[in-house]
Amino acid sequence: MSEELLSVKNVSISFTQYVQGLNQHELKVISDLSLDVKKGEVVAILGSSGSGKSLLAHAILGILPENGTCEGDICYKNEVLTQQKKEAIRGKEICLIPQSVNFLDPLMKVKEQAIGDVKGEEREEALRKQREIFSKYGLAEEVDDLYPFELSGGMARKVLLSTALLSNPELVVADEPTPGLDEKSVKETIMDIKNLKEEGKGVLLITHDINVALEIADRIAIFYSGFVIEINKTENFADTGKLLHPYTKSLIEALPRNGFKLTEGVQPLEEVPGCVYYDNCPIKSDFCKENRPNLIKCGDAMIRCHNYDKEVK
């Protein structure tokens, strides 16, 4: 395996909220998340919409809101990223591909946004680079002077992509790059991300679209109620027998092509002392109710389930 780019170790992200007057409430959105992305690899985090996956992207780039706290270590090239370090390399070595045109300033021409805050000779150089990458993604010269609201959906996606890639980053964090796009644009996005991988970049893909994840990712991390419960190779997802966690299995079995088999139950909203999947799990034991499983290695995969923990058994 090739060189490790990003490694996230036991990261928890929580928010301080005020409930009823001055009572503070700690809302945990991501708990004990660990994963890594290597060069030339696409790792997908697959989870339901609105479950807080994007916050991982924000934490990696150091752009969490003020009331958000991030515990645990985020390492880039085996070096722990401090806030200063994040600020130094974001937009250069690590880039974010955001999800929609809302991430562009409505009152600024797209080329100005793409090149960022540069002046003088640097500006000429930046504009040249911007034109180059815009051309690469099939954006005509007229697009440079358009405002975001004048872009079509597909154009906006390309603008966001090329804006993010302008500095030629090594790690790309793509936050929900496909929702709301027509099928052709989704295919193009998939191709574009595959190309990034070919160029040796690492891609962390945050998505709720299982088909997109299956199509481009090398490994998929399943995000459930704030926890990563399984990280497995994408090829194993073709065969539920090779999957480990009961949730992952039922997720795959619920796909139309795999028999549409639905499993009842919802993700817990409140923090639970034991396994988050306890209520819906078919293979649970009493032990799972009170004891939280850790993410452990199981062959090439990672799994958060007591059934695979030899010590527990």
């Binding site: 600020e87 955001p98 562009l104 409505p106």
Partner: peptide, 14 residues
């Protein structure tokens, strides 16, 4: 707190 400022910050502006 808008998305486009978030993206601008993610691109290194500050």
């Amino acid at each position: 707190s808008s998305d486009y400022i978030l993206f601008a910050r993610a691109r290194g502006e500050s």
